[in-house]
């Protein structure tokens, strides 16, 4: 049970990071933290409900890998255009 509580706190830490960080890369790191908190709760619940939780966590890891590839590609592309990865500089979405 303590694992589930820790995963809730870890998720809240990720939310704090997303809200306070100002570079896109660090926002991304906080999102990874939230994904892992969700994974921890999936693994924790798997001990009560069966192995499906672990399979779902495996899928989350694979999807996170895809997300990182696309997200970092976007960040690199934006940096080429704007010379910046600060999310506040990107508040107007013009080419």
């Amino acid at each position: 049970m303590s694992y589930l509580l820790a995963s809730a706190l870890l998720f809240a830490l990720g939310v704090y990071g997303v809200l306070t960080r100002r570079t896109a890369i660090l926002v991304f790191l906080s999102i990874e933290l939230m994904l892992n908190a969700a994974n921890l709760s999936l693994v924790g619940f798997a001990r009560a409900y069966g192995l499906e939780g672990q399979v779902a966590a495996l899928m989350v890891i694979a999807i996170a890998a895809a997300e990182v590839a696309v997200g970092l590609g976007l960040i690199v592309a934006i940096f080429r255009q704007r010379e910046s990865t600060a999310v506040d500089d990107l508040s107007e979405l013009r080419g």
Binding site: T23, V68, L72
Partner: peptide, 23 residues
């Protein structure tokens, strides 16, 4: 995944966390 992150941070010289203005 994290090594990819480190690679991009170093590629873009983006190690500084506090950048830009604070709206």
């Amino acid at each position: 995944i994290v090594v990819l992150f480190l690679f991009v941070i170093m590629l873009l010289y983006a190690a500084q966390g506090e950048v830009g203005f604070d709206p």
